[in-house]
Write a protein that binds this DNA or RNA. Sequence first.
DNA 1: TTTGAAATAAGCATTCG
DNA 2: CGAATGCTTATTTCAAA
Lengths: 153, 153
Amino acid sequence: MQELDECDKKILSQLQKNNRITAEELGQMINLSTSAVQRRLKKLREEKVIEADISVISPHAVGISITCIVDVTLHVGSSKVVDTFKSLISDCHEVTQCYYVTGAYDFVIIVNTKDMKHYENFSKKYLMDNPDVKQFYTHVVMDKVKAGLGVNI
Amino acid sequence: MQELDECDKKILSQLQKNNRITAEELGQMINLSTSAVQRRLKKLREEKVIEADISVISPHAVGISITCIVDVTLHVGSSKVVDTFKSLISDCHEVTQCYYVTGAYDFVIIVNTKDMKHYENFSKKYLMDNPDVKQFYTHVVMDKVKAGLGVNI
DNA sequence: TTTGAAATAAGCATTCG
DNA sequence: CGAATGCTTATTTCAAA
């Protein structure tokens, strides 16, 4: 993919807030014909500049009321330990985000559960009873000040 | 909003993976007429069970190559300090996520920047030179193992 | 009142100048 | 690149359960 021009950036900036906007509306905003916008949209999706188009579901509405951020340190003897943990967490539905990071601990994971009881179950199964986990520290989220995926375009 | 039934949940589960799917396709999946699906979609959007419909943009494609997770501790003298920090961060484009949490520190923020130089500028402006910030610790993300917003439906 | 199907409108993909 | 076309999808309406 070649460089994105200003129009592409404006389109992307809009889409990451609302992807149900029509090509016509987009065109009016950035002074481009509907066709031109459609061509760009097609290309941006084909080239995976737009990685996905999704709906954001209210966690509360589906019974999710607890979000925890957990700092995890592993007994890192080999890279296999890290890979095993990655794949374990990838398959865990309660975990919506997982980052392998530098610094005082190895992973930061964000866990969504129905209530504290369910979080307890999760932490037992995936953290306490996991011999590769050296230690972990749980932060309960009191306020999601900001919680998007958008990037600064 | 009353209880979501199984059909609603299946619809939501699909939409949070792909919201460009047609009502007809959704209907075939869950054995419902196109009209029925449309009615549910309309309601789910009206009642904000579907909070938003967005495109996910490739950070790499728009020149974002560094993601950092920062643990922030404030000099908490009053709730005003907390609120001020929340609003400061809300207006900061580099920060895509911000959580106010319990535990060893007060906030976890996720920061996206072009490169380390830009991260340094960010941290100077918003953290080092901010008298309300007692201390902060930066983790550089080496691998985004999982990075969605989806919830376990 | 709720459902599915038909009619209408709107948006998208494609072709052409 | 932009206008015009046909095609797909969404919205609205209506009749029946």
